[in-house]
């Protein structure tokens, strides 16, 4: 059996690498990751420095989630809308391989963004004397990728079932907990000026005020990097996400067989 999904993934990778929107998103995520450390130099408190690190990590996660939603929305539907799908679907490649290939290209891109962000944050953290173990930190970032792949797969399927705007709205809605998590951590940091100041804090405070579940975040803010990596959870989530990604790929293939391309 000839497997050619990796050629589709290569194609998807090149498409993403040359997308100006994603380049802008990537640049913004690097900027936020660096900016998150902006105020931490003013305090010697370990807690303050750890909070800066947490903000940087969560902000970078947020951008990776956004990138996953963006890629999921565009990777198949843009191919269909631009009619490039006709050229792609008339190659001797199974539909499921096309779906997995496009998903694989997206996953590879998101992995690269995360890897670069992780390295950047780690280098700055070391420079700021923040006690971080590279192994645990890297594994934590890898574990973050697992739900990102699920977001990518789910967005891809939703964009095939519905339109791009509806799928985008649904995914932002589903991902809002992650978004609010970032905002809550940032807000928490901003309320302790002796620790750390975050640029754009007034806008974040506004977001905080209109959030109907804001007190939940106040209770949960003290969530810092776990230096003990939860291997059990990691394996369980990997298996679960593998199942969801596979199911999403099959569903997308089923839809594509019945869709005009």
């Amino acid at each position: 059996m000839n497997v050619r999904a990796h050629h589709v993934a290569h194609y998807a990778w090149l498409r993403l690498v040359r997308s100006h929107y994603l380049k802008a998103l990537l640049a913004a995520s690097f900027f936020v990751a660096v900016a998150a450390f902006g105020g931490s130099g003013g305090s010697d408190s370990v807690m303050a420095r750890m909070t800066a690190l947490e903000v940087a990590i969560k902000a970078s996660r947020w951008f990776v989630w956004l990138a996953a939603i963006w890629i999921g929305l565009s990777c198949i539907t843009d191919e269909i809308n631009a009619q490039t799908a006709r050229t792609l679907f008339t190659k001797p490649v199974r539909r499921v391989e096309v779906v997995l290939g496009l998903m694989g290209g997206g996953a590879l891109y998101l992995t690269l963004v995360t890897a670069v962000n992780t390295l950047l944050i780690f280098v700055i953290a070391v420079g700021r004397d923040i006690p971080v173990s590279l192994g645990s930190f890297a594994l934590l970032q890898v574990s973050m990728l697992i739900p990102v792949f699920a977001v990518l797969a789910l967005t891809m399927v939703l964009s095939l079932v519905f339109s791009k705007p509806i799928a985008g709205f649904l995914m932002i809605f589903l991902a809002q907990e992650n978004v609010w998590d970032v905002l809550a951590t940032t807000l928490n940091a901003s309320q302790r000026p002796d620790w750390f100041k975050v640029p754009g804090v007034f806008l974040l405070k506004l977001c905080y005020l209109i959030s109907p579940t804001y007190h939940r975040f106040i209770q949960e803010y003290q969530e810092f990097i776990q230096l003990e990596f939860p291997w059990g959870e990691f394996v369980f989530h990997t298996a679960a996400i593998g199942f969801y990604v596979g199911a999403a790929a099959l569903l997308a293939t089923f839809i594509l067989r019945r869709k005009d391309v």
Partner: peptide, 18 residues
């Protein structure tokens, strides 16, 4: 497709390529 397009190729209208 994996059988059909090994023997048949297609050139779409307006060459829809990325």
């Amino acid at each position: 497709p994996e059988v059909l397009f090994t023997r048949l190729t297609y050139c779409p209208e307006e060459s829809n390529v990325f």
